[in-house]
Design a protein around this nucleic acid. Sequence first.
DNA 1: ACCGGGATGTTCT
DNA 2: GAACATCCCGGTG
Length: 204
Amino acid sequence: MTAPNPLPRSFYEGDSREVAPRLLNKLLVHGELAGRIVEVEAYAADEDPASHAFRGETARNRTMFGAPGLLYVYFTYGMHFCANAVCGDVGWAHAVLLRALHPVRGLDVMRARRPAARRDRDLANGPAKLCSAFAIDRDLDGADLVTDDRGVTIVDDGTPPPDEPGRSARIGISVAVDEAWRWYVPGDAHLSRPEPRRARAAAP
DNA sequence: ACCGGGATGTTCT
DNA sequence: GAACATCCCGGTG
């Protein structure tokens, strides 16, 4: 078992579609809370019409244009926050949306923050649910995951990503809907959507 | 189980 | 004024 260390800056450098599947099974840590990343989506800078960065830098997406390894938090639908790991490079605004966590540590705190979650599997199985459970909001936009300057980081506890991650189109977008830039840990109970049933070997 | 609608506020057209 | 990288609740089967 390796000692849990924050991922280095170099881990986040490069195209989000390469970084995203490598983030699976890493641990998101905020203070005493920890959860395993089991579902992510890549947003590919200015070549991706679904990306907040597609039309260039604005006040809202400024963090995406900063250093890889920053946390980009945005507010949506009037009440929810979503969190991304910034990738790419300065000015090359790739990002990986964290879509679902498998809670590992601090479940009692998460339950208190997520009263609507009837089962523990509902605590962090969605991009806004995980932010609520982990108390991630606009105050943490721009936090550095590498230096852990504000208590939020992503660490490697020695669990490798899946050899063959699940893959699908991204969820909740209205453009670039055919790009299969969502990855997940197959069989995990904490995904934001149930995994599609595998095709049968034979018809009934 | 699945589906439909409402909540709520920021951002950009 | 529309859109929004969503969630929750209450309806119907």
